[in-house]
Write a protein that binds this DNA or RNA. Sequence first.
RNA 1: GGCCCGUUCGUCUAGGGGUUAGGACGCAGGAUUUUCAUUCCUGUAACACGGGUUCGAUUCCCGUACGGGCUACCA
Length: 515
Amino acid sequence: MTDPSNTTAPAKNIRVRFAPSPTGVLHIGGIRTALYNYLLAKQQGGTFILRIEDTDQGRYVPGAEAYIAEALQWCGMIPDEGPGFGGEYGPYRQSERKDIYRRYALEMIEKGVAYYAFDTPEALDAQRQADPNFKYGAAVRMSLSNGLTLSKAAVDEKIAAGEPWVIRLKVEENETIHIQDLIRGEVNFQTSELDDKVLLKSDGMPTYHLANIVDDHLMKITHVIRGEEWLPSTAHHVLLYRALNWEATMPQFAHLPLIMKPVGSGKLSKRDGAKLGIPVFPLSWKSDRPEDTVVGFREYGFLPDAVVNFLALLGWSPGTEQEIFSMAELSSAFSIEKISKSGARFDFDKAKWFNQQYIMATSDETLATMVRPIVEAHGHHPETAFLEAFCGLMKERVTVLPEFWENGYYFFEEVRNHDLSGIAKKWKKEQRPVFDQLLKVFSEIPTFDAENLKAATDEFMAQNELKPGDVLPALRIALAGTMKGPAVFDMMALLGKTAAVARLQHAFDHFDQAI
RNA sequence: GGCCCGUUCGUCUAGGGGUUAGGACGCAGGAUUUUCAUUCCUGUAACACGGGUUCGAUUCCCGUACGGGCUACCA
């Protein structure tokens, strides 16, 4: 299972990175990308690195980086290196590495594989307006304002005068770039189709393309596992490795299929969660702007292991029929080759099924610690033993954590309203004395547990020629208000003699009135 | 528009030149259960289309269609 030849680069120490941009909340697709990186690293005894790609100061969102770190930790993916996680290859925030990128950009100018360009964004926009197919490349660069058309002296003069400039990659014509993608096989691009990408922006920050290549090289990244949206720019990245003479140690690429919207077409986006009332983010995020406020899987009541399990199988399959995997099992079964090529639609029903499976498999003790905050939020402070027993009775009947309360609140407070439809036909005034007798039987039971309760009730029913259907539904509605729920005698035992008998009595009075 | 990627049940997927095309979710029915849920059983439903290659193609190749991504001084 852990055969390294499985996933290439056998002898090397695997180093992978998850490199999100702190522009806001990170949705579940990002978490899956992180997961696949993490699984490969753990399987191979490698290193999982978190790198923050904050080179766009305009889109920086305070708190986003903390969100990312918290989300990874919640999912059980602790970076081995990263901002706040230590490591020998820092800093791990690109905004703190500006000088490094500038150095390499300048080096490329020296080598003649990159050049200064002075065209303003406005001028370029105008070009695109005029020609939607405009591309800053070999065909037009000799007619624009840049280091290729200006003399060295003119370039120096403009720079000295404080005129804004960028550095662009000089893409040669008529070459074919071959990429060996671990998931897709060989993918080819013609350089004639490629534009002269900006490497260093006029604000001194690198673009993604430059920063990503420089950092991956310096951080000794062996595998780049990222979303398919990066596939088209990979040709530029290969060119950059070449331009810097790093091609020999270039990482291997694996471009992941995208996660698609639950309904409609296109890739999953931020807005899809709010639109359908389902979480598509790991954690909740509060923003001043309501449209940026989102609910997370955690707050919706999912267990992290269930989310991880669900995500792992959304685009990857072990090739066996196993569905439930712990993180350790995932990392031993994982292989890049088994990642599928096509996009996977986000299926919330499946996510809920996984969560239900995980809740049922979790011990009552653990469940109690997770359910306690929910119950306390409603003003109740049950004893641990009670809460654990409650979780035991309810865990096969919930799919997300808040349902423990929603479906079982009546264990903590009085029934809010009784669903009389189930017993309306059965409840007859003349039967009331019979139920009062049963109540008396209950209150005389020495050990008020489910077993004794059942035995006593069976005996009572036999003596009075009653069938379970004559008695149990009324008890159930009286105790819980609903026909749904745990076994009647389990409910009574958990409630305890005093509470159970009192509740039955009051409910019977209510039945007499209401029916 | 151009470039790139993809296409097996409604969804997630296994498989792979000769299979009754397997599993899971969902849905439907049944068994168990005083109820609900769980559990178990059964059913439902798929190889996008057209050409090749081949004795044989869902599987390989080429087209077409459809879907997706990219096409910024965003990542």
